[in-house]
Amino acid sequence: MANLSNINLYDVAVIGAGVAGSVLAHELTKHGLKVCVVDKARGSGGRLASKRFKSLTAKDVASNTSELGTVERNGGVRNISLAADMGCYVFAANTESFQKTLVDWMAQGRVLPNNFESDKRMSNWRTCRRSSWLTRSLLQKVDTKFSMKIVQLSHASGLWRAYTEGGDEAEAIVAKNIVLTMPPPQIALLLPDTHPDRLKLMHVPYQCQWVLPVFVSHESAPTFKAQLDSMLSAHGDNWLSHYWEESSKPQRAEHPIVSCFVLYLNEWCSRAHGNSDAAQVEDFVLDKIKQGNRIDICKIYAHRWLYAQCCQPIRGSAGYMQLDDNLYACGDGFASIADPTYEGVERAYLGAIDLAARLVPNALNADDQLACS
C-alpha cells in the first residue's frame, strides 16, 4: 500500500468541467466524497461555455464609423468588456428525472424556462446569466483546478495519477478513481496504445460548428436583426443555422453601447470551413452581411467547436464506460440514451447521474477497506 500521508488523495478526480463533469462532481461531493475537477480551460462550462473577448477600447469607439458614444467613468473613457455565450444556451428535457432536476435548478437560480418566441429551436429550457453559471454554481463546493491539461495517466498500488502538461511527479493529481469527461478522441490519447477501446474511441467523428458573436451599434441592431431573419427565411445560398440576441436573455443587462448577436453557421457551411482559421470565417460572414443593409459592425469573433458525433453509446452500460479498474469515461457520447432527439446536455446529465450512483458506494466501500488495512 502506498504511503497516503504525504499526498493529497482524492476519492475521485474528474477530468473535464463540462456538464457531465460538473454534475458528477456535484453529486459525489453531496455524498461526502473528496472530489477534484481539472480542466484545461480557464473556467468551467464545456458546451455551456461563455467567453470573454478583447475589450472594445476608447480608440475603437472613436475610430468606429458610427457614433457609438462613450462611457464616462471618473471623468474618462473606460474600456468596454465584451463577452458572449458561445455554446449550447438552450436545451430540452425529455426524461422525467431531468425535468425534475431542472425544476430544482430553476428554484436555485441556475436555469429558466425558454419562453422566447424568437428562438425557433424546440428547446424548453435555457441557461440564465452567463451559460457557464450553471456549471460554476454546481462546482461551488468542489476543489477545481483550471488551466491544467492532463497529458498522462498511470496506475500503481491501487491509485491513479494524472500528470499535467509541464508538471512533475510531485504535481500529479492522485485519486482512487478517475473519470474522463472529454470527447472520446481526446480520451483515447490518454490510453495506452494496447488498450482494447483506444482505436474505437479515436475514430469517433467530430462535428464542426462555427459560432460568431457579432457586436453592432445599438442603432444598427434592429436593422441587423431584420437582415438575419430575412437570411433565415431565404432559399438558396443559406449559410446561417440560427442566431440569438444576448440582450433577449433573462438577467442579462443590456450593454451601454453595443448589441451582441451570436450567429451559428449551419452544418453544411461549418463543415465546408472545417479547416479554415477564425479570420477566414470572420471575413466570410462579413462578406455575407455586407450584401444586405449597411450595418455598423464594432467587433466580430469566430470560434470553432468540435462536438463528438456519438448518439449511440460506445460499449457502455447505463450512461458511462469503464475503461480500467476505477477508470471511467462519462459524457453525452457514452450515455445510454440512443435516441438522437435527446440533446447532449440531457445525455451528459443522465450519464453523470448513473455513474455517481456507482461511484458513491464503491468509494465508501474502499474507505472501509483502507480503515481495516
Rank of each mutant, 00 (worst) to 15 (best):
P192S: 06
T144M: 05
D168H: 10
P196C: 08
A156K: 14
T127F: 14
A156M: 10
S157G: 04
Q140D: 09
I187E: 05
M202R: 11
S157V: 00
M148F: 13
T127R: 08
Q152T: 13
V174D: 04
S157F: 02
L191N: 06
T181L: 01
L139Y: 01
I178G: 00
G158A: 05
L134M: 09
M148R: 13
A175P: 00
K141A: 12
V142N: 07
R129S: 03
A162I: 09
L134W: 06
H195I: 15
Q140V: 01
K145R: 13
C128N: 11
N177Q: 13
G167E: 00
R136D: 13
A162Y: 06
L134N: 07
V179E: 05
C128E: 09
A170H: 07
N177L: 06
L199E: 12
M148Y: 12
I173Q: 02
C128W: 14
L159T: 00
S147T: 12
W160E: 04
L190K: 01
E165W: 10
L189H: 10
K149Q: 09
L201G: 00
W125A: 03
S147H: 14
L180R: 08
M148A: 15
L138F: 07
L201W: 02
K149H: 10
K141S: 12
I173V: 15
L138R: 00
S131Y: 00
L190Q: 01
A156L: 13
L199K: 15
A175M: 00
P196N: 12
A175C: 06
T164Y: 02
T194F: 14
A162H: 01
P185I: 03
P185H: 04
V174T: 15
K145F: 05
L159R: 03
A156N: 12
W125P: 05
W125S: 02
K141L: 09
M202D: 06
G158V: 04
S131A: 15
R136Q: 15
I187Q: 02
R136W: 03
W133G: 05
S154V: 11
L134D: 01
A162E: 02
W125K: 05
R198P: 08
P192M: 08
S137V: 04
L180A: 08
S157C: 07
L190C: 07
L189G: 01
L201T: 03
A188S: 12
W133K: 00
